[in-house]
Design a protein around this nucleic acid. Structure first.
Lengths: 365, 365
DNA sequence: TTGTAGGCGTTATCAA
DNA sequence: TTGATAACGCCTACAA
């Protein structure tokens, strides 16, 4: 027997209870002594309704406890006013939580609802999420960020507007990215200005995603580091530590940062500053510094990336802030704009600035 | 003119595009040369279908790119297999993100979808979220955690199963809580065993929520502290710092913890250990310790609550772990159990154990 | 083993 | 200014 394609949701279990015996338009209409059409006109504030009729209908709405059935409405109108948000992961790295907040708040402002699906970095879960959303007829889809290029293509093919946020994996749909090179360059300039020359880099290995678009992020961050070091005649591989994520689900965390920093410290190489490619890694760097009895920033300056954990660390972490919330807002805006004026482009590319935030973890040599 | 009650979603904007011209059962039926009934039987794997007919239908499904319309299905069956999750906030405190993950994963395992609505601590947003979910005919509602007792009552009244997680505000629906007294007691025992007697407490002021149920959490945490200190003849108000959240949206954070700890340090009171009522507050305590040139745990032992930030701090924070994921899983389980066996109780109260996690921020005096 | 027909709650068209 | 009626896509008796 052939198996069901993913886009067919497993059948609903048989059940006998009727939970939602919510009154319908018809009930309200009867209570008000009018036709359902009239009630609909009142509720949607559309078309002509006599003032006293309106009052009567509103009373009936109250009396019956009527509530709209968005399912029926969407079935009929083909528009759900819902945006589906596919989140790569929310835990442990809270970055995408901030993106989600941006999407939600912007969408709400334009009377869209946002629904969120957490894929925990797994391509199959991502696929299930896309299918769930499409089965529910969401109007548009946000990937923050996509796991699989194929999945993005699959979503685009379905015809809904799509946007890839922060780390796109293809040219499909809209894309919103961050100027990572610029951000990392500013961080390096800051360290160089403070007199640092022995600056280490700890991050993901560029190219480890196996996708040219997605890899661009780490390439830019490391590239800015390397360029800055070269310009000061001091690029030294002994001060670089790369990790390679085991799988899409795995995000390099504090443990990795701590081990990498310890290995640099143990090697005895001179190091007065560290650029980490995420706040989580930077948190680990600070742990290693602390564990070795040193202090930041007195002994080692540390800079992170993202601005997620930075306000909670000791010392408060200087970091390259990714505009997470704005990323989300922009994604929602692009999508809703496209939905509301049909002719518009479906392939915009937007690059947002990173902001450099100086806190307490950097100081002169 | 009367205004629309909240439960009537604002009307959809007029639009002319038809985004989802997805094939329907009818299209598949035509392609396969059978009736829609037969296609439905194949898709739902229900009733008798000849093997070759099934094959033919499956081919037609593939060929047409058919996908189920969950809206129509739910409209008909009155069951959406969707759980609505109302999240108090996700940022900055990532605690509820973990709860959300628990709900999602458990629900998915029983083929329910979870939709999430972020209310950012605002009662009106919570109300909007409830209405949105009910308008979409979700099968059940999770509050993690509710902002307004009235809103919970409103949700329960609608007839959907409801659960309040971690900090209930009433006896309505199911409730899942954590044994905070037990958790805080273990933390105190740990500190006492290490020889600490000058132990400070920094947290929210018990009673500041203005709701007996919600206030119970902070009362238990502080109560365990006070009882332990009294049992060792050493309760001293000079070592206690309370904050009172300005509003429901506001969560005491690292800034508060840092200020409170500094004030204790500045006062010159002897303090060798601190129990903080959240990891975020504890993060601030560590910042103050670091800023004053002291070290943890050598000079001050620190214990947090939640196990959210603890793995990222320097030193790694000893903490009372709230079983966030399990809280979510249990919530989903309760709800789905109730949905699937109608007769069952709608008012269960479950108390989960807190787990005490010893890391690096505590040491003998 | 397969098909016909009616209805879920809403909106849109067309009359009245 | 209001009302009847026909879809939207699916499910499910009931019939064949």
């Amino acid at each position: 027997m052939a198996t069901l394609p993913l886009c067919l949701k497993p059948n609903l279990p048989d059940r006998d209870i009727d939970l939602h015996s919510t009154p319908t338009l018809k009930d309200v209409a009867e209570a008000a002594g009018v036709a359902t059409t009239t009630v609909a006109r009142v509720i949607n504030d559309k078309g002509y309704v006599a003032e006293d009729t309106r009052e009567r209908v509103m009373k009936a709405v109250e009396a019956t406890g009527y509530r709209v059935n968005s399912l029926a409405r969407t079935l009929k109108s083909n528009r759900s006013n819902v945006i589906g948000h596919l989140l790569r992961s929310t835990d442990p790295n809270p970055f995408f939580v901030k993106v989600a907040r941006g999407v939600e708040e912007y969408a709400r402002g334009r009377s869209y609802t946002t629904l969120t699906y957490n894929m925990q970095g797994a391509a199959e879960a991502e696929r299930r999420g896309i299918d769930t959303f499409l089965n529910w007829r969401v109007d548009a889809l946000v990937f923050s960020t996509p796991v699989s290029e194929d999945n993005v293509a699959y979503a685009v093919k379905s015809g809904v507007p799509v946007v890839q946020v922060e780390r796109p994996r293809s040219e499909a749909g809209h894309r919103i990215t961050v100027k990572n090179y610029q951000g990392a360059s500013r961080a390096m300039r800051h360290l160089l200005d403070l007199g640092h020359r022995s600056i280490a880099y700890i991050g993901e290995e560029p190219g480890s995603q196996g996708n040219a678009f997605a890899d661009y992020v780490e390439e830019e961050r490391f590239g800015a580091y390397r360029d800055a070091k070269k310009n000061h005649g001091a690029f030294d591989e002994a001060l670089v530590r790369f990790t390679r994520p085991q799988s899409a689900e795995h995000i390099p965390g504090a443990g990795y940062g701590a081990r990498a920093m310890s290995s640099i410290l143990d090697a005895g190489t001179k190091v007065t500053a560290v650029l980490a490619s995420s706040d989580m890694i930077a948190a680990g760097v600070l742990q290693a510094v602390h564990a070795s009895g040193l202090r930041s920033p007195e002994d080692v300056s540390v800079i992170g990336f993202d601005d997620t954990l930075s306000p909670y660390l000791s010392p408060l972490l200087t970091t390259v802030r990714l505009p997470a919330q704005k990323l989300g807002e922009t994604a929602a805006k692009l999508l809703i704009d496209q939905l509301e004026k049909p002719g518009s482009k479906a392939n915009k590319l937007i690059e947002l600035d990173a902001e450099f935030v100086v806190r307490d973890s950097t100081a002169p040599v």
